[in-house]
Write a protein that binds this DNA or RNA. Structure first.
Lengths: 143, 143
DNA sequence: CCCCTTAATTATCATTTGATAACTAAATAG
DNA sequence: CTATTTAGTTATCAAATGATAATTAAGGGG
């Protein structure tokens, strides 16, 4: 296998993924939060509960900036902070009820655009897509 | 096929793609350009020649901002603008020699990280990956 | 020709994001 | 018990990005 060719295929693939992700999520984000804040909310939604350090690592932003954005999200009422009972330096962050509602709305919009995109796909196509997602997830985009 | 389940699979998949892309491209970008400028260079690299309007559409940034960043990239000597001979409003943009060198370096770094990531993959795995990329590209992330 | 549209530019301003230093408080190692 | 490390915060500044209005120049339809 020509790994160089595979690499180039990956490059144009990721570029497509980014473009389509942009299309699907366009304006899905509520106006009340910025792009970075939305990314944080998305991360929390999928991984909650998370600590500020987790967010800092995974979104690669510095702790001070992470802390600032979390403070805003907390002020807007989209997240809740809880202290760890064992290590009192740590916090656990979850979506609040309002945060859940906001993210459900965003995801509903994204989902409807996704459905639109696969509208014409046959049952077989969908199964191919699912298999392909699984393969790439486990063999290439793991961890 | 449960499309809702497929959608959720897609969500975590795209999140993985973004995470891995971040890992692979971390610090690959030359310090001389900003994140947005690098994204533009990447887009030009893969799709050249492109017009400012193409860039504006695909990176969804406004024309004024696109124009500003292209001007900077041009001043830095990374791109070249050529006029369309038929429609003299249009421009075609390509990487300059310097731009090619810079992007080759960036891609070399990304590629070596990619190779590292698929180091342990068998020949069969690689073929699976390639097939999966093709399937998703044509059936889901097309256009 | 005139009007409307398209492609791109310039200028300007507000907002977001990134980076850094200095700090508090709790845990942990010696 | 002290020193160091870890988790998180606050404040502040600089830079990057986004948004908008006004402009130039060319193409296209009537």
């Amino acid at each position: 296998m020509d790994k160089k060719a595979l690499f180039h295929k990956l490059v144009s693939f990721t570029s497509s993924v980014h473009r389509v992700t942009n299309e699907l999520t366009l304006n899905a984000k509520p106006d009340s939060v910025t792009q970075v804040q939305y990314k944080i909310l998305e991360y929390i939604t999928v991984n909650q509960p998370v600590t500020p350090s987790d967010i800092s690592d995974c979104q690669n932003m510095s702790m001070p900036n992470t802390s600032r954005e979390l403070k805003k999200l907390s002020e807007y009422g989209f997240i809740e902070k809880m202290n760890d009972t064992e290590d009192r330096r740590k916090q656990y962050i979850r979506l609040s009820k309002a945060g859940e509602i906001v993210m459900e709305e965003a995801f509903a919009m994204i989902e409807s655009r996704f459905l639109n995109r696969v509208q014409k796909a046959s049952e077989e196509d969908l199964e191919d897509i699912e298999r392909a997602l699984d393969i790439l997830q486990t063999k290439l985009f793991h961890q």
